[in-house]
Amino acid sequence: MAFFKSRDEKKSEEIYKIIMDTLKNRGNQVYDLKVEFQEGVVTLSGVCDSEATRKKAILCAELAEGVKKVNSDPLLLSEAAAQEQAAAVPPAAPVSPNPPIQTAPPAAPSVQTAPAAPVSESPLETGFPSAEAEAAELKPSPEPQPSPQAPETAARSAQPSEPVQPQAEMQTYTIKSGDTLSKIAKQFYGQANKYMVIFEANRDVIKDPDRIYPGQTIRIPPLP
């Protein structure tokens, strides 16, 4: 009686042959290799002589036509390969102990401040003036007294000013800008109406008593 193989069984044998041929040509070896294909998922089991052999077997199964996923958990390493693999893995860095928790320094003691001095209450002010203020307002202010003058100062102020003494000798005077004969007579004689005395003494220089010019030199005679 002939046995018919299912489609999955045929696919399993095909993948098995691909893996074994590939590993044999490369000098790799898998002990008790088993391949099961079911609905696109391949499950590999067996013992590999190295990690490189295991990876190559998985890669061959993944590249096979119709394979969607490869379950390689049952595909193990030999004891020697496992020890070699463990030796190649560097040891994990030791976990440093937790650093001590930094605690905040104790709070500084609060500074005791002196209590504020009580504010003295000012007496209530009323809208009425005090008796002292009323008395000060009713008291008449003293009248200002004239300051006494020294006797000598009072005597001087009472005396009339001395008149300008008339000139006793003939003098000369150079007329300046702004001068008039009346002004010059007032300066020398003390009387402005004596200007005709100056005019009569200078007829050779002054032709008109109302017209004199700066720079003219005139004579100032004494009063008769």
Rank of each mutant, 00 (worst) to 15 (best):
M1S: 11
M1P: 09
A2Q: 11
F4W: 12
D8C: 05
D8Y: 04
E9H: 03
E9A: 13
K10Q: 12
K10G: 13
E14G: 01
M20E: 08
D21C: 02
R26N: 05
N28R: 11
Q29K: 12
L33G: 03
V35C: 05
E36A: 13
E36I: 12
Q38S: 15
Q38V: 14
G40M: 06
V42G: 00
V42W: 04
T43I: 08
L44N: 01
S45K: 05
G46S: 03
G46C: 02
E51V: 13
K55E: 13
K55C: 02
L59V: 10
C60P: 01
C60V: 02
A64P: 02
V67G: 03
V67C: 07
S72P: 07
P74R: 09
P74M: 02
L75K: 00
L77V: 01
S78M: 01
E79L: 10
A81C: 04
Q83M: 10
E84T: 07
A88Y: 00
P90W: 01
A93V: 12
P100V: 15
P100K: 15
I101F: 10
Q102S: 13
T103V: 15
A104G: 01
A104Q: 10
P106A: 14
A107F: 06
A108P: 11
P109I: 07
P109K: 09
P109Q: 11
V111N: 03
A114R: 06
P115Y: 04
A117C: 00
P118M: 03
V119L: 04
L124H: 06
G127C: 03
G127D: 12
P129A: 04
P129G: 01
P129K: 11
S130L: 05
A133E: 13
A136R: 12
E137R: 15
E137N: 09
L138T: 12
L138A: 14
S141Q: 11
E143P: 10
E143N: 04
P146H: 04
P148F: 02
P148E: 10
P148A: 08
Q149D: 09
A150C: 00
A150G: 07
A150S: 13
T153F: 08
R156W: 14
S157T: 15
S157M: 15
S157F: 14
Q159K: 13
S161I: 13
V164K: 13
E169C: 03
Y173E: 03
T174S: 05
I175Q: 00
K176L: 09
K176V: 10
G178P: 02
G178Q: 00
T180S: 10
L181N: 01
A185Y: 05
A185R: 01
A185K: 05
A185P: 04
A185S: 15
Q187V: 02
Y189R: 04
Q191Y: 12
N193R: 13
N193V: 14
Y195I: 09
M196E: 10
A201Q: 10
N202L: 09
R203A: 08
I206P: 07
I206C: 04
I206R: 00
P209R: 05
P209Q: 05
I212K: 11
Y213A: 06
Y213T: 12
G215P: 02
Q216S: 06
Q216W: 14
I218Q: 02
I220C: 07
L223V: 10
L223Y: 06
L223A: 08
P224A: 07
